[in-house]
């Protein structure tokens, strides 16, 4: 993995050390994944369905803690600190997550949706701070001009692509260290997908993004580095261009050329 694209020679922001996840005793959905993620990059996790890519992503913000039957082992270091030494709630605030299905909170207005993280965390803000955060976050996802006049409408009024951008804004509002995205465009039309991809390229300047995708061309378009997973194992992790042109592993090559998938 020496060929991982590391923009500016920085320390890794996220380190996975022998991370395994099992849904039932004896079977592992993710097997001993060890790798590093560098700041201000987009990393795409690819692989056939059921390969454990979403499971690995959800381990990073400790979503698995919600389900007592799922066991996560190994170490995950975020900015050098082991996330298992923190509360899951703290970890989730540092590692924001965007889901496959846009899930704005239907009982909240667009405005409140952006601030949902603060509300849920019991953080009180005055009106000025709120307005500032909302405007900043919505501008950050290029949604501000579209919704600034309908702030009090429910989030569910928006189109699918707008909803997903609202969900990203909601995550950005909490200023996370890292952004986890679980197939964020697979429920969207091509135009919305395109907008989100452009957005991610812009967000890269401020955040580190890990995106699970089943869409190889999407990975090729936006990611700096790519991970290929198969049957729960991390088969290959490297510079995206290099991986797409000269995969090191035979299974990666087979997947990328469409032999299976």
């Amino acid at each position: 993995m020496e060929n991982i694209n590391n923009n500016n020679g920085m320390e890794p922001i996220l380190q996975l050390k022998e991370v395994s996840v099992s849904y039932a005793p004896g079977t592992k959905a993710v097997k001993d994944v060890t790798t590093d993620i560098y700041p201000n990059t987009i990393t795409a996790i690819m692989g056939p369905s059921g390969c454990g890519k979403s499971t690995l992503l959800r381990a990073i913000n400790r979503m698995h803690d919600l389900y007592p039957n799922i066991k996560t082992t190994g170490d995950i270091l975020l900015k050098g600190e082991n996330i298992f030494n923190f509360d899951p709630m703290e970890v989730r605030r540092m590692a924001g997550m965007v889901f496959q299905q846009p899930n704005p909170f239907p009982t909240m207005s667009i405005y409140d949706n952006v601030l949902a993280g603060y509300k849920l965390n019991g953080i009180r803000l005055d009106k000025k701070e709120k307005d500032e955060i909302v405007e900043q976050s919505l501008k950050g996802v290029a949604l501000w001009n579209e919704v600034k006049d309908v702030m009090s409408k429910r989030g569910s009024f928006l189109s699918g692509g707008q909803q997903q951008r609202l969900c990203i804004a909601r995550t950005l509002a909490l200023k996370p260290e890292i952004l986890l995205m679980d197939e964020p465009t697979s429920a969207l039309d091509p135009i919305s997908t395109n907008k989100i991809e452009e957005l991610l390229l812009e967000l890269k300047n401020q955040f580190t993004i890990i995106i699970v995708t089943h869409n190889m061309s999407q990975a090729a378009r936006i990611s700096d580095n790519s991970m290929f997973m198969y049957l729960g194992e991390l088969v290959e992790h490297g510079n995206t261009t290099q991986m797409f042109t000269k995969p090191k592993n035979k299974r990666t090559e087979e997947y990328l050329t469409g032999v299976f998938g």
């Binding site: 913000n61 924001g96 889901f99 899930n103 849920l120 965390n121 909490l174």
Partner: peptide, 14 residues
């Protein structure tokens, strides 16, 4: 829906 609940948890809610 579970995706709403997960959305809330992913923002750090108890």
């Amino acid at each position: 829906p579970n995706n709403l609940k997960e959305g809330a948890y992913s923002l750090g809610a108890t």
